[in-house]
Simulated assay, not measured.
Amino acid sequence: MITISAHEADEIVRIQPAASVVVVENPFCGREPDALDVPTSGLKPSGRRRKVWLVGRLSNKQKNLQGFIKFCDYAPGNFSINLVGDDTLEVLSERTERKIETFGWVASPVSLVHDGPIVIPSLYEGVPLVLLEAYTHNVPVLVSDIPELSQFVVRECVFDFDDLSKANCERFTEIVQKIGSGSFISRDEWATDYLRQYGFRNAHEWVSRMEAEIFRLRY
């Protein structure tokens, strides 16, 4: 097995002591990307319900589904939570009045995403596969403020989901509305300020390189 996370490696060995685990250095450093100038003036609230999407092994506490649902109860605006992944019904222990739709396991989950971003509120991550797939399909992503995710996304798309302040929750809703209405910055703007320092012209090039590296190390 290959991982860029020492924490994940320890967990694999704990579960399967006989496993052969290789920890590969993450080729990207943790520099904060420059903030992008995203105009906020003139934004009108939309009556249409936007969507936020969570994809993956949502039953794992690492994915922080319950924490995110609690955060959404403090966020204003008309948006639903859409869950694509394993055991989506069983993990909904957090009560909420927010509309939640579950899709279970889907072969191509990113193909379902529309009217809003994928949200990755994880407490920690290894190789962020959902982020890779989202980049490949030109789907905007909002992430939790952890180095494994935040270093690949501009600051406008990074959130502390433990921060239930009015300002933080309103900022989240505003970005969701912008993405859902198509008025948000494009992929080639919101990713590349960070990635250009490594010689990539856009996020798609970075994804292709990461996939090639994973394939090379695996085979």
Rank of each mutant, 00 (worst) to 15 (best):
I2A: 03
E8K: 06
E11V: 09
I15T: 12
A19Y: 02
V24T: 02
E25L: 05
R31W: 06
E32N: 10
D37W: 07
K44G: 03
G47L: 09
R48P: 06
R49K: 14
K51S: 15
L54E: 04
L54P: 00
N60Y: 14
N60V: 09
K63E: 06
G67W: 05
N78M: 06
F79D: 06
I81W: 00
I81N: 01
L83Q: 04
D86N: 14
E90Q: 15
V91I: 15
V91W: 07
S93V: 12
S93R: 12
S93H: 13
E94L: 08
E94K: 13
T96V: 04
K99F: 08
F103M: 09
P109C: 05
S111Q: 13
V119H: 01
I120H: 00
P128L: 03
A134L: 07
V139I: 14
P140C: 03
L142K: 07
V143I: 07
V158G: 02
F159D: 07
D163T: 11
S165E: 10
K166L: 13
N168P: 10
E170N: 10
F172Q: 10
V176Y: 02
V176K: 00
G180T: 11
I185K: 13
S186W: 05
R187D: 13
D193E: 15
L195T: 08
L195N: 02
R196S: 11
A203N: 09
H204L: 15
S208D: 14
R209Y: 14
M210G: 00
R216E: 08
R216M: 06
L217F: 03
